[in-house]
């Protein structure tokens, strides 16, 4: 998955006040790979491009009033991801409605259509939601792993035991710490990860 770009407050400020759009290209190039990676599995390239364009437009319109406050609101990429997610969900919804309309047209046209043509499976909607949950956890995990306020060793222990599935005893031996310490690290880090996921979800509800 594409790396999450670090926030450049100078770039944000310049883009927000840039009537000549000189730095806009730089801004779009910086965040485009991340957005493309998020949308890759859900949309064909052309549609993904549309969603990205809509997102960038929305961001451009909102930037003059955006206040960067990582401690309160999370980093800029969280904000951007929230907008991207909403645009993508709207597009998915539109795609679904189109598919339903097309299906209905086919049913009405077909002599056997009314006799019980297969419906769109109801759990397709929850598949999208599940996929977004996985994406949120992925983003949150990368943010956690890049969080320098957490000691590197702590992040490494968590990564190995909670993500890579190594046995806690093996991880404890590798780091020369007690098994108990590994369990404590895992139980301290999981709520942090949960909070980041919740913050990402909240940022998306705009």
């Amino acid at each position: 998955m594409a790396d999450i770009p670090t926030t450049s407050t100078t770039l944000l400020r310049d883009v927000a006040s840039d009537s000549q759009h000189v730095r806009w290209t730089e801004f779009a190039a910086r965040y485009r790979p991340m957005m493309e990676a998020y949308l890759r599995e859900r949309f064909p390239p052309v549609e993904a491009d549309d969603v990205i364009q809509e997102t960038l437009l929305a961001v451009w319109a909102a930037l003059p009033s955006y206040r960067y406050a990582p401690d309160e609101k999370g980093h800029f990429h969280n904000y951007l991801t929230g907008i991207l997610r909403n645009k993508a969900l709207r597009q998915l919804g539109a795609n679904r409605r189109q598919a339903e309309i097309a299906e209905k047209v086919r049913e009405d046209a077909s002599p056997i259509g009314r006799a019980g043509a297969p419906r769109t499976p109801p759990d397709m909607i929850s598949d999208d939601e599940l996929s977004w949950r996985e994406t949120l956890v992925e983003i949150a995990l990368r943010q956690l792993m890049n969080d320098e306020s957490i000691q590197s060793r702590t992040r490494q222990v968590f990564l190995r035991v909670a993500v890579n599935g190594e046995k806690p005893d093996d991880v404890a031996a590798a780091f020369g710490i007690e098994r108990n310490a590994v369990d404590q690290i895992k139980s301290r880090m999981m709520p942090r990860l949960q909070k980041i996921v919740a913050d990402l979800e909240k940022a998306g509800n705009i």
Binding site: L136, L141, M190, L193, Q194
Partner: peptide, 14 residues
Amino acid sequence: NLGVDEIEGILSAH
């Protein structure tokens, strides 16, 4: 509001 259990589940399949 993902619970810790659900997040652990997602991580285990990661």
